[in-house]
Amino acid sequence: MEFLLDIINNPYYEQVLTMMGIYLIAALGLNLITGYTGQFSFGHAAFMSIGAYSSALMTLKMHTPFLVNLLAGGLIAAFCGILLAFPSMRLTGDYLGITTLGFGEIVRVLFINMEITGGAIGLAGIPKETDFVTVFVLVILSVWGLYRIVNSRFGRALAAIREDEIAAETMGVNALMYKVESFSIGCFLAGISGGLYAHSLQYINPSDFGFAKSFELLNFVVIGGLGSIPGTVLGTAVLSLAPEFLRFVKEYRMLIYGALMVAMMVFRPNGILGGVNLGDLFRRLKRRTKPPAAASGGA
């Protein structure tokens, strides 16, 4: 217990865990789009940047309360998501992926060229509003919300689209509408995550949200296991902590990180928890441990 308190009181650990939580919220959104709905999005970081810039600008220029700005950032990101999704959700697979990637790069270049966002220099002096507790609560809320979504009628429709879009449409699922809705929910979470990011690091720059960040988010989701919420949590934890743990190898850090990504995919192509149902796993474990427990009770 004291160890846990130490972790929370140590500013370095707190910062690392806060960032992990922030990325986790965005990754959960991406998991809804890619893992549950089966649609590629290679530009998720762009929606983070939209949320980050809009909430930071609201804080700086309009002085509205933090939570309002955070929510507004999420909603603006979701709105942009809808704008992108309506025309592009007609594309499939890699074509959709490359379109979202292109969108991400365009957003980045736009932010570099806009005056209000501070251009390439970025936006500095954002007050520090994000703390570990806020992030923690929002992570719990997002996980809970995502569970509710995927286990609802809506979530089952998304799964049907992922498995076979034509079959889903024949069953009366309006695939385009569902895909757009799922995309905008994912973007909303990315926007919230971006707002938290801006108010945690207090400085944002368009190049923070390039396509490298989008692929980092995709890594979290795929390496954790597509379409698995515990998988996303685990993938984000492992991959966002890995660079911290690998600090002792200094300049070889990213070398090992890259090799690690290849190795993880080669050995577990479906991700760490892909295709694993944690509920079943626990039940099986319980069954296996029950008899000895009964025996010890008898003795």
């Binding site: 890594n219 990213m254 990180y257 290849v262 995919m265 080669v266």
Partner: peptide, 26 residues
């Protein structure tokens, strides 16, 4: 990086490609 993943999901070789690219850049 790709041959072992030829029969898995579409995204797996993609991630492994990004891993290779990070590795070579570093």
């Amino acid at each position: 990086a790709y041959r072992p993943l030829r029969r898995s999901t579409r995204l797996a070789p993609l991630i492994s490609a990004i891993g290779v690219s990070i590795f070579l850049q570093t």
